[in-house]
Computed example of a mutant assay.
Amino acid sequence: MPRAKLEVADIFRRFGLAYRQANAGHVSLSQLKVMSAIEACRTEALGGHVASCTKCSHQHIAYNSCKNRHCPKCQGPAARDWMAARAEDLLPVEYFHVVFTLPAEIARIALWNKRAIYGLLFRASAGTVMTIAADPKRMGARVGMTSVLHTWGSALTHHPHIHMIVPGGGLPPNGRRWVACKPGFFLHVRVLARLFRRLFVEGLIALHRTGQLAFFGDLTKLADAEAFAAYLAPLRKTEWVVYAKPPFGGPQQVLAYLSRYTHRVAISNQRLVSADANTVAFRWKDYRIKRGDRMKVMRLDTHEFIRRFLMHVLPDGFHRIRHYGLLASTQRKVNIAKVRVLIGASAPEQAPSSDDDPAPLTLREPCPCCGGSMRIIETFRRGQVPRPRAPPRKQAV
């Protein structure tokens, strides 16, 4: 994909210092680290390498990526590597996409308690699906799932929700057969929503009781147990948003979907329109419009844009992709192999190894001039510069 004309890194480099100074004491260390990483990404500050084409005379300098999971430029390669590792786990069965969303009242609390609330969101949503699926009146089987946390809406607002990909079936308690769900139907959404609401509220009260929640601003009064219970009371009666999309057409569609969602960040560089010291403009999708063109352009104060972006920085070490049930990391390989035997499916073919495989110092991207392999001929560390070279000689025609 060609480089975007405007990037989040450009905004941080030009206006990040002023934002830091104006908000001193209100920007967390994790957020400062993300800003610094994005600012330095693919610049001489991180070092790099010189690559030369093995077929023509083309050479170029490429600077290292920051590899920060919040950086819009670094997620493409990370997603490709992750998807390559997950491809062998796919089963030839229907897959379903289920989304669990937190009410706005809970999202306000989550903004200051990310690790506790986001962790509870993972546990409650996974527990909901596994409990309902295991009910003998429903499917009566142990299922598996991959859950991905997103914390943003299209306008960069705070909107925590879980995207869950679930194979349409599972193993009964005796584990002797594969129990498939009804074609095109996984589980009742309303049943999922009500159990999710109960599990999450119970978990939230437990967090409050053990002193794991902090409250600020107009929410400070919620530190009192009675005030907190009163705040949650209306949420016990409202319908929480849980919805399931139609099943994917096949495993390849699951891979394509996951590649778009697993390593997505709050906003991609391609959505940016313009930026100056006063305003940042970007494209966003208005989901309130049911028909017609949903895409609009939003203009935010530059500092407000940076604030909204940093609002989605996750706590250090917090995993935003998690696997549960049959797909839990400890037993995933064993369970998948067992299911394949039960449904009579063969394991996916492994790509044969070859002596022609690219060497470790050969880049994945081909030469922009002739399409040949690009080989690294020099590496340099941060603070260093590549050795000067004479211009390559032109090849005789």
Rank of each mutant, 00 (worst) to 15 (best):
V8P: 08
V8L: 15
A9Q: 13
D10V: 06
D10H: 14
D10L: 03
I11Q: 01
I11Y: 05
I11M: 10
F12R: 00
F12V: 00
R13W: 03
F15T: 05
G16Y: 07
L17D: 14
L17G: 11
A18N: 13
A18H: 11
Y19F: 15
A22I: 05
A22F: 06
N23Y: 12
A24R: 12
G25W: 03
G25S: 01
G25I: 02
H26S: 11
H26W: 03
H26I: 00
V27N: 02
V27Y: 02
S28L: 03
S28G: 08
S28R: 06
S28Q: 03
S28D: 02
S28V: 02
L29N: 09
L29K: 08
Q31E: 15
L32G: 01
L32V: 07
L32S: 00
K33F: 01
K33H: 10
K33V: 08
V34T: 13
S36K: 14
S36E: 15
A37T: 13
E39T: 13
A40P: 02
R42P: 03
T43S: 15
T43L: 13
A45Y: 04
A45C: 10
A45V: 08
G47T: 09
G47V: 11
G47Y: 12
H49L: 10
H49C: 06
H49A: 07
H49F: 14
